[in-house]
Design a protein around this nucleic acid. Structure first.
Length: 587
RNA sequence: GGACCGGUAGUUCAGUUCUGGUUAGAACGCCGCCCUGUCACGGCGGAGGUCGCGGGUUCGAGCCCCGUCCGGUCCGCCA
């Protein structure tokens, strides 16, 4: 065993070495002082003996996190005094020279593995938090992942091209971060939500394989896997197909996992968006979760139970059931009723299966009295119910049922420990619908407005809600790792999509004129994909939040606790930009 | 914009509700003294608190009520 950073091992015994770093820990025995010296992830023990009179008095005043340099003899530790937990545990440096580069105040929180500082203080003193081995390892892994992705794509002939960070606002999609222009008074740049149009234009420019590890910005509220600035592995190719893009992507992810985690991922299954919604209620299913949703509309079409009968007979409604074998209390069910209530569900019907042989008395539930014996028998048969199982129902508005039941499915699996946390379950979701319907009844792109459709222009025109796009997402353990599509390369088709989206010719010209014009100068068929790098690192580092794999992240309220950004600016600065704030401070 | 959880010593937490009542505790860290083989060193002693902030109820509030700020999880939002 030898140490990478200090480059010391038992073979250096007898040599003189100079080591520098941070004081991880001082153990002052009065007579002899031990110092664990840290640099990056490495530790080495320094011994200061009282015979070294000058440095001993200095050493007596050394505290944790001082930055020092010592020189001295590398020697084998006494028999039985080796520390097997330490890389350099067989040896120690017996100091005869000691220099203090920098003292340290006591830290606002302890860095050792036995303490557990809160996120607020960790973020305020992020530079200290990053000294901790966990954070150090995460950022090193992030660097390795970055590096691997670059090498992989470059080897495949992709060209890494930067696109602007100061660009044009795009009112579609997420809210833009705006940058006021001083030179062009009254006008604004925007930070890119993604390099989408630029990478498509690079296809027009004849770069047939482009990639970029690109910072993107979206002014929307945060989640544990979302913050206002994030990093995408952005890829685009011309003269390609869905299959080729998915193959390259899969190859990239498989090799990445092999290289970094020594994990072999099996061939990624593909399921359609429709199937995913039916079985899991979401387009980013966690396939580690064994629970699936069952459509039970057919069982209750003629039911006397209105709560089931109405949705069973309504196109825009859903009636689904899920089952699992658990012991569950009344109060837990109440908790879950509240949980699905967050998604708009009005209730959570359930049936406990106590004795399958007695349909009348063996099923325990507030709703069995409303259901006929035949309905119950059919339910038992359809769901293959067994004693000890509980069935939960979601009934009503399609979106509410799917949102609530998919979240509930995941919550149950987590609460009852049904998920193998060590496993990796990637899945491609394909055949997304072209459009989603907004609450106002208008169409909005399910991916983005440049996505090519598998459906004919005719079908797009007549029943756009049925149109399928050439879009695909890669989902891993319930997280959307990336998504992409084939793009429209024909100007007429692009205009058609804009018109279906309710974007007028004038509006399209004003917002995307440069892009539409480019389509008129020889645009190759093309497509691409973008991966969320932060999420990939988060999952690979086994962290719960992307904040733990970002060196200087934002909080939930989009602030940086270390720098206090965002902050006020002076009126002079605003005047330069012709900006006047209407914000009124409350006491 | 909304729901929920949290905010008490430098840090991590207990105390808080049902039940408001003298001087708000613990551990780690910090400071002092002692200690020559520790490695989460050990021993003895000590300092350290605007109970997030503001208001209210009360004879009396860390505890009850209202508001607000900060952190987190989620809904909305995220083409």
């Amino acid at each position: 065993m030898s140490s990478k950073i200090f480059n010391l091992s038992i073979s250096d015994e007898g040599k003189t070495a100079t080591v520098s770093g941070w004081v991880e820990k001082v153990r002052d025995h009065g007579g002899v002082i031990f110092i664990d010296l840290r640099k990056d992830l490495d530790l080495v023990q320094v011994v200061i003996e009282p015979s070294e009179k000058e440095i001993f008095t200095v050493a007596e005043n050394i505290k944790n996190e001082f930055v020092i340099e010592v020189s001295g003899l590398v020697r084998k530790r006494p028999d039985g005094k080796e520390n097997t937990k330490m890389n350099t545990g067989e040896i120690e440096v017996c100091a005869n020279k000691l220099h203090v580069f920098s003292k340290s105040k006591p830290l606002p929180f302890q860095l050792d593995e036995y303490s557990n500082a809160g996120e607020e203080i960790r973020l305020k003193y992020r530079y200290l938090d990053l000294r901790r081995p966990e954070m150090h390892e995460n950022l090193i892994m992030r660097s390795e992942i970055n590096n691997f992705v670059r090498n992989f794509l470059v080897k495949k002939g992709f060209v890494d091209i930067d696109t602007p960070m100061m660009t044009k606002a795009t009112p579609e999609g997420a809210r833009d971060f705006l940058i006021p222009s001083r030179v062009n008074q009254g006008k604004f740049y925007a930070l890119p939500q993604s390099p989408q149009l630029f990478k498509q234009l690079l296809m027009v420019s004849g770069f047939s394989k482009y990639f970029q590890i690109a910072r993107c910005f979206r002014d929307e509220d945060t989640r544990k896997d979302r913050q206002p600035e994030f990093t995408q592995i952005d890829i685009e190719m011309s003269f390609t197909s869905c299959e080729e893009i998915m193959n390259i992507s899969e190859d990239l992810i498989v090799k990445l996992f092999k290289k970094i985690l020594k994990v072999d991922l099996v061939k990624f299954p593909k399921i359609t968006h429709k199937e995913s919604m039916e079985k899991y209620g979401t387009d980013k299913p966690d396939l580690r979760n064994p629970i699936i949703l069952h459509d039970v509309k057919d069982l209750f079409i003629d039911s006397n139970f209105k709560v089931f009968k109405d949705p069973a007979n309504d196109e825009k409604s859903k009636l689904v059931a899920l089952k699992l074998k658990i012991d569950i209390s009344r109060s837990q069910i109440d908790e879950y009723t509240k949980f699905v209530g967050n998604f708009g569900a009005k209730g959570l019907a359930y049936i406990k299966v106590n004795d399958i042989s007695d349909i009348e008395k063996g099923l325990q539930s507030p709703i069995v009295k409303f259901l006929s014996k035949t309905e119950l028998q059919n339910l038992v048969k359809k769901l293959d119910l067994n004693n000890g199982e509980v069935v939960f129902f979601g009934a009503g508005n399609k979106k509410i049922v799917l949102d609530s039941m998919s979240a509930f499915r995941q919550k149950l699996a987590e609460d009852f420990d049904l998920i193998d946390k060590t496993s990796w379950k990637p899945v491609w979701i394909t055949d997304f619908p072209m459009f989603d319907e907004t609450s106002e009844g208008t169409l909005t792109p399910s991916h983005h407005p440049f996505t090519k459709s598998l459906s004919t222009l005719d079908l797009l025109e007549k029943s756009p809600e049925q149109a399928i796009s050439e879009a695909y997402d890669l989902v891993l353990n319930g997280f959307e790792l990336g998504g992409g599509s084939m793009r429209i390369h024909d100007i007429e088709e692009q205009k058609k999509i804009f018109s279906l989206l309710g974007i007028s010719n004038e509006e399209a010209k004003q917002k995307f004129g440069f892009f539409l014009e480019a389509l008129e100068y020889g645009c190759p068929p093309h497509g691409g994909i973008a991966f969320g790098l932060d999420r990939i690192v988060m999952l690979m580092a086994n962290e719960d939040s992307i904040r733990d794999v970002i060196a200087f992240p934002k909080t939930q309220s989009a602030m940086c606790l270390m720098t206090d950004a965002p902050d006020k600016v002076s009126n002079d600065e605003l005047e330069d930009l012709s900006i006047k704030s209407t914000f009124e401070e409350t006491e």
